[in-house]
Computed example of a mutant assay.
Amino acid sequence: MTATLRLAEELIARPSVTPRDEGCQALIAARLQRLGFVCETVESGPADFRVTNLWARLGTGRQPTLVFAGHTDVVPTGPLTAWASDPFVPSHREGKLFGRGTSDMKTSIAAMVVACEEFLVAHPQPGIDIAFLLTSDEEGPAVDGTVVVCELLQRRGERLDWCIVGEPTSVERTGDMIKNGRRGTMSGKLTVKGIQGHIAYPHLAKNPIHLAAPALAELASTVWDQGNAFFPPTSWQISNIHGGTGASNVIPGTVVIDFNFRFSTESTPEGLQQRAADLLQRHGLHPGTGYDLDWTLGGRPFLTPPGTLVQAVRAAVMAEVGIETTLSTTGGTSDGRFIAQVCPQVIELGPPNATIHKIDEHVALADIEPLKNIYRRTLEHLATQAGTGG
Rank of each mutant, 00 (worst) to 15 (best):
10 E>N: 11
13 A>D: 09
18 T>I: 06
20 R>T: 07
22 E>G: 01
31 R>Q: 10
35 L>C: 12
40 E>R: 12
42 V>L: 14
47 A>E: 15
59 G>K: 14
70 G>P: 05
72 T>L: 04
75 V>Q: 04
75 V>C: 08
76 P>G: 00
82 A>F: 09
83 W>N: 07
87 P>K: 07
88 F>V: 05
90 P>L: 11
109 I>G: 01
114 V>P: 06
125 Q>K: 12
126 P>C: 05
129 D>E: 13
134 L>R: 02
139 E>P: 09
158 E>W: 11
161 D>E: 08
161 D>K: 06
164 I>E: 05
166 G>Q: 00
167 E>H: 01
174 T>Q: 01
175 G>W: 04
175 G>E: 02
177 M>C: 14
184 G>M: 02
199 I>D: 07
200 A>E: 14
203 H>C: 02
209 I>S: 02
210 H>M: 11
212 A>T: 13
221 S>W: 10
222 T>D: 14
227 G>M: 10
229 A>D: 15
229 A>R: 10
232 P>I: 06
236 W>G: 08
238 I>Q: 13
239 S>L: 14
241 I>T: 11
242 H>T: 10
253 G>Y: 05
257 I>G: 11
262 R>D: 08
267 S>R: 09
272 L>V: 05
273 Q>N: 09
280 L>P: 12
286 H>A: 14
294 D>P: 03
297 L>E: 10
298 G>K: 03
299 G>N: 07
304 T>Q: 06
305 P>K: 06
326 T>V: 15
332 G>F: 08
333 T>N: 09
336 G>R: 02
349 L>G: 05
351 P>W: 00
352 P>F: 02
353 N>Y: 02
355 T>G: 01
357 H>A: 10
369 E>A: 05
371 L>N: 05
372 K>V: 02
375 Y>W: 02
378 T>I: 06
389 G>F: 14
